[in-house]
Protein backbone atom coordinates (compact mmCIF):
# COMPACT_ATOMS: atom_id res chain seq x y z
CA UNK A 1 0.00 0.00 0.00
CA UNK A 2 1.20 3.49 -0.86
CA UNK A 3 0.84 6.38 1.59
CA UNK A 4 1.34 10.07 0.90
CA UNK A 5 3.34 11.84 3.60
CA UNK A 6 3.32 15.56 4.40
CA UNK A 7 6.49 16.49 6.27
CA UNK A 8 7.33 19.39 8.56
CA UNK A 9 10.52 20.53 10.29
CA UNK A 10 13.58 18.33 10.09
CA UNK A 11 11.45 15.57 8.47
CA UNK A 12 11.29 17.75 5.36
CA UNK A 13 15.10 17.73 5.19
CA UNK A 14 15.27 13.98 5.75
CA UNK A 15 12.69 13.25 3.01
CA UNK A 16 14.17 15.99 0.80
CA UNK A 17 10.77 17.58 0.22
CA UNK A 18 7.48 18.41 1.89
CA UNK A 19 5.57 15.53 0.32
CA UNK A 20 6.67 11.97 -0.33
CA UNK A 21 5.01 8.75 -1.41
CA UNK A 22 5.96 5.83 0.80
CA UNK A 23 5.36 2.18 -0.03
CA UNK A 24 4.55 0.32 3.19
CA UNK A 25 6.51 -2.90 3.38
CA UNK A 26 5.85 -4.27 6.88
CA UNK A 27 2.12 -3.82 7.41
CA UNK A 28 -0.51 -1.12 7.28
CA UNK A 29 -0.43 0.41 10.75
CA UNK A 30 1.40 3.47 12.06
CA UNK A 31 4.11 1.29 13.59
CA UNK A 32 4.85 -0.22 10.15
CA UNK A 33 5.00 3.23 8.63
CA UNK A 34 7.54 4.31 11.25
CA UNK A 35 9.54 1.14 10.57
CA UNK A 36 9.52 1.75 6.82
CA UNK A 37 10.56 5.37 7.33
CA UNK A 38 13.45 4.34 9.59
CA UNK A 39 14.56 1.62 7.14
CA UNK A 40 14.44 3.91 4.11
CA UNK A 41 15.70 7.07 5.81
CA UNK A 42 17.93 6.01 8.74
CA UNK A 43 17.99 9.59 10.11
CA UNK A 44 14.43 9.01 11.35
CA UNK A 45 15.60 6.33 13.76
CA UNK A 46 17.69 8.96 15.57
CA UNK A 47 14.62 11.12 16.28
CA UNK A 48 13.25 9.61 19.45
CA UNK A 49 9.85 11.31 19.20
CA UNK A 50 8.52 10.55 15.74
CA UNK A 51 4.90 11.67 15.95
CA UNK A 52 2.49 10.75 13.20
CA UNK A 53 -0.85 12.45 12.66
CA UNK A 54 -3.43 10.81 10.43
CA UNK A 55 -6.41 12.82 9.21
CA UNK A 56 -5.59 15.69 11.58
CA UNK A 57 -5.17 13.61 14.71
CA UNK A 58 -2.15 12.09 16.42
CA UNK A 59 -2.33 8.31 16.27
CA UNK A 60 -0.86 5.46 18.24
CA UNK A 61 1.29 2.75 16.69
CA UNK A 62 -1.62 0.34 16.22
CA UNK A 63 -3.74 2.73 14.12
CA UNK A 64 -4.56 1.15 10.72
CA UNK A 65 -3.77 3.34 7.71
CA UNK A 66 -5.79 3.61 4.52
CA UNK A 67 -4.46 4.71 1.15
CA UNK A 68 -6.48 7.96 1.10
CA UNK A 69 -5.32 9.05 4.58
CA UNK A 70 -3.52 12.32 5.06
CA UNK A 71 -0.38 11.45 7.01
CA UNK A 72 1.63 14.26 8.62
CA UNK A 73 5.04 13.93 10.31
CA UNK A 74 5.87 16.62 12.85
CA UNK A 75 9.23 16.41 14.57
CA UNK A 76 9.87 18.84 17.44
CA UNK A 77 11.39 22.26 16.80
CA UNK A 78 12.91 24.42 19.51
CA UNK A 79 13.55 27.87 18.04
CA UNK A 80 12.28 31.00 19.73
Amino acid sequence: MKINILAFGIAKDILDGQTKEIELSHGNDVKSLKQTLCDTFPEFSKLRSLSIAVNEEYRNDDYELKESDEVVIIPPVSGG
Binding site: G9, I10, E43, K46, L47, R48, S49, S51, Y58, P75, P76, V77, S78, G79, G80
Partner: peptide
Protein backbone atom coordinates in the same frame (compact mmCIF):
# COMPACT_ATOMS: atom_id res chain seq x y z
CA UNK B 1 2.18 14.09 25.47
CA UNK B 2 3.19 15.40 22.05
CA UNK B 3 6.96 14.81 22.23
CA UNK B 4 7.75 12.32 25.02
CA UNK B 5 11.46 12.21 24.18
CA UNK B 6 13.72 15.01 22.97
CA UNK B 7 15.70 14.58 19.73
CA UNK B 8 19.42 13.88 20.18
CA UNK B 9 21.62 16.98 20.51
CA UNK B 10 22.50 18.56 17.16
CA UNK B 11 19.81 16.75 15.18
CA UNK B 12 17.26 19.58 15.11
CA UNK B 13 19.11 22.85 14.46
CA UNK B 14 18.39 25.96 16.55
CA UNK B 15 17.58 29.28 14.85
Amino acid sequence: DLFPDPPPPGMVPSC
